[in-house]
Design a protein around this nucleic acid. Structure first.
Lengths: 204, 204, 204, 204
DNA sequence: GATGAATGAGGTTTCATTCAT
DNA sequence: AATGAATGAAACCTCATTCAT
């Protein structure tokens, strides 16, 4: 009582209040899903009170939105850098494909949340997230198209469809990947990028 | 009573009560997600009362479970038939890959529900669904392994990983495929199967 | 299937349908309380259907009412017989006190139900049961009064109060008596009757 | 808002929210029984909302549990004080017997609830209440045993049984005692204690 | 910046009972 | 005599959010 009761848990230790909230929310939303996690549970795990949460975030929805934002922004930055490299298009696509796998595995909780709970976002925020994601996809697609026009990639499969084909694998990671398994994120990234690039080679 | 109050809606018209409930639930769960759909909404769409629903289904969870079961059983049957065909392994894998895409698109609502809401199922039912899904995966994987041992498929990527790679695309369908778009389910099935098979060819 | 599924349980075996229902209801009401036992549970334990129950009993309430009736009628008959015996009043009171303990222990489930659930009965039925119970009490009280006017029992405690005092012990049996304990119903009956009679002796 | 909707009733007037809730619950549970009283009825009588109730009490069960606790604790305190008095054992037993009657009548609603609804409590809480009650009984029994070893009380009836015998009368109070009758709690306490003590005297 | 009591709408589920067969 | 599908009211409880302090 004298100094405030520190009943906090794992997340409570370090960082500012908003950081602790985001960290707790990320873990819980990934574990139980957005709708099955109550605001009470999030604030308890973060070691703060409800009032504090509503001081920093406008709503539970906002919390979800912020979780998305962080990884999405990082992945877009990576892709922008990769696509602007001075290297053959096949190499750039391979690097981009590998990178999205590696970063998704490094932030597996966010990935799970992204694909499971995006439809729970308020329409407006959903549009905003989708817009950012679309931007990512378009950049990726334009690289595929470049490869097709250079004759490095097969042209009988629409570039759009190639992107949808590959990003399914990213979605799926949250379902099967285990941090304590044998494969590192790099392993999976390399294998998946290999499978993609090989599948894209012109057919004889 | 003689008049009967037909407050029913779309789903109410045809079929038995459980059928109407499953139809309504499938549509609503796909549209809004499982947790955001109330039992009240389901029974209203089916044109029955809550009591009737609980007469046939033990819980809201049960409804979700039944939705899964139907498509899962069908896809497993298909795969069993395909894998037992007397054809080269590459052809069989192509047919299986194409089939799962085609049937997932033909039951797109169920597919959306499957991948978005499975984690909301009660643990026991979740295990049951996972077990059936695993069975499917193992059958698929064994075909890939056969191709590898025959030298038809590359062996530098674990067969397990190939299955996880491809089934991501199935997951993802619900996110981007539009029934009113230009591509039919067959188109997508063929293209995705092509990309997979090409990606699996031994690397020179 | 061929001959109807006998999923019945303990109660199902013997007796007519109404008998089986009463037996099942008595056991379940005593175990879980009237309000916490559903009609469905009663009919399942009796091995019949809900329709059958409503054929024989007008309501769930009726079931409770019948349970009461049986023991109450028996105890009243016993008391009438005992009170008309040609024996000293102290002996008759002792016999009556002992008898109500013995029969209550022999029908312990009914006793539990009686004292726990009577207030759940519909007002009309409650009045009817109370009337029968009051009749019993009055007969008992008149014996106590007779003892008082004969000078065999102390007169400084109102006879009414003596009856309320003693019947508390009957109430209470369901709370502590264990069929598998050391004391038989006869033991308890004798001891309690002894305590009562001794307490009633004129004070010097 | 400025006006505030005072739909409150009897209990609403005074005291904190939890106090008002306990007061309302005590009255209603005694009147209609625990299972026949809805949470809605309790909060309406207390003049608060359901949310407020669940802010202070974990469940409807908790409300019942708290009702028990208060009287039980008071009675135990009384007994501890009485049993430690420096007075002949017969006097102490008389005082204890009288006290439990007097306090039970002074809190007649709680007494009714206690004996009618305890079996509806969740198992864990039931154990807790039983444990406290057992403690009370043991203390009472040890006084009886002391009287027996001193030769002040008869020894042909087990002390255990004496306690069960007498506490039946406490149970029963809720059934017959009327606040507006002729007998005060003190009257009943004295008479019942007299009957008990007289019954316990060594038989010649 | 932060608290936590309080709200009130809405959630899932249970249940005694009815009635066409 | 007996069935079991269907009703509809009411039950307990949860939760995101607000607001006076």
């Amino acid at each position: 009582m004298a100094r405030g009761q520190r009943t906090a848990e794992a997340e409570a230790g370090r960082g500012s209040v908003p950081e602790r909230l985001l960290r707790a929310a990320t873990r819980l939303f990934a574990e139980r899903g957005f709708e099955s996690t109550s605001v009470q549970e999030v604030v308890a795990a973060a070691g703060v009170t409800k009032g504090a949460m509503y001081h920093y975030f406008g709503s539970k929805d906002d919390l979800l939105y912020e979780v998305y934002g962080r990884v999405l922004r990082m992945q877009t930055e990576h892709l922008v850098e990769i696509s602007s490299r001075d290297a053959p298009v096949a190499e750039r696509v391979h690097a981009a494909a590998s990178d999205v796998i590696v970063t998704s595995i490094a932030n597996l909780d966010d990935t799970k949340i992204f694909f499971r709970s995006m439809h729970q976002l308020a329409p407006e925020k959903q549009r905003s997230v989708r817009a950012e994601r679309r931007q990512y996809h378009e950049l990726f697609r334009s690289m595929v198209e470049q490869g097709q026009s250079e004759g490095v990639f097969r042209s009988d499969v629409p570039a759009d469809l190639v992107v949808d084909y590959f990003f399914g694998s990213v979605h799926h990671l949250g379902t099967w990947y285990r941090q304590d398994g044998q494969l590192t994120g790099d392993d999976v990234g390399r294998h998946f990028a290999d499978l993609l690039i090989a599948g894209l080679r012109p057919q004889s």
